[in-house]
Design a protein around this nucleic acid. Structure first.
Lengths: 140, 140
DNA sequence: TTACATGCAAATACTTTGCATATAA
DNA sequence: TTATATGCAAAGTATTTGCATGTAA
């Protein structure tokens, strides 16, 4: 999709879009299209392509942030300043949330340096969780 | 690939792997498998699957870092402490490097808080570059 | 000799798209 | 009525994998 011009296109408020948005608002962690579809589909049956199209639409409008994680899947969450980053175990693929985001100040200085209007960022840590570290050392 | 046990497997040093690694060492920015293949293939013809397999191998060994960018592609670079992050324009998709990485200290406190052994992180900023911002406002 | 590396083609997995139909405004 | 949303199936794209063959140690 290369429609970079954000014309305020005519927008219909549909039941499906509203449902998707309300599920996303409840979520504290970013979720995948597939995961969102599973949840929404139970309440109001819809096709996965509707989910993808809605997610693209909301992301384009700046309502959602989209991040691609190490597993190669896109994760979406409501765009707010209290967003959440994760720490990912490269062994068991557990994800745990990171307490706070330290980048707000940095974004400001980055904006001054580069002239960019900063819209957001993607941040993910990876490492080895305590239990995997234990298993690993006991195998040697 | 779920071979989580990092046994120090027998490793062969082949011309192709050496070439790939030496190209990666010269690169200052992270590059994609396809891009790496293009460069390597001119010097020593090889299949793209060899590139993917080598990249997976090096990443598993901790020699490379692998990050998935907003375009959905994996970018690889030599794992060192002077790594580079980027700022990405959501309109023209230009990528510019970010001067320094502010996360080393944070990784330490995160490690203390969670018990994880932190191996690395993915960080990408996105925004609108000055020239796209100009074009955008002149269209309204 | 033997285990690992590679080429090739086919398979995967997530995501996007074309087209006909349905629906909000 | 009319432009936009949706379902369905097919296509797209980056990546992975099975298997036969090649090659370093």
């Amino acid at each position: 999709m290369e429609t970079h011009v954000l014309k305020s296109a005519d927008v219909k408020s549909t039941k499906k879009r509203n449902l998707l948005l309300s599920i996303l608002k409840e979520e504290k962690q970013a979720i995948t299209a597939e995961n969102l579809h599973e949840k929404a589909n139970k309440i109001l049956p819809m096709n996965i392509s509707t989910v993808y199209r809605s997610l693209a639409f909301f992301t384009e409008k700046g309502i959602l942030s989209k991040n691609i994680h190490k597993d190669g899947k896109a994760y979406y969450q409501i765009q707010n300043h209290m967003h959440q980053h994760t720490l990912h175990c490269t062994f068991c693929h557990e994800n745990i949330p990171v307490a706070q985001c330290p980048l707000t100040e940095l974004e400001e200085s980055l904006s001054n340096e580069t002239g960019y209007k900063i819209l957001g960022h993607t941040l993910q840590f990876s490492g080895i969780c305590p239990s995997c570290a234990k298993k690993q050392s006991s195998q040697e």
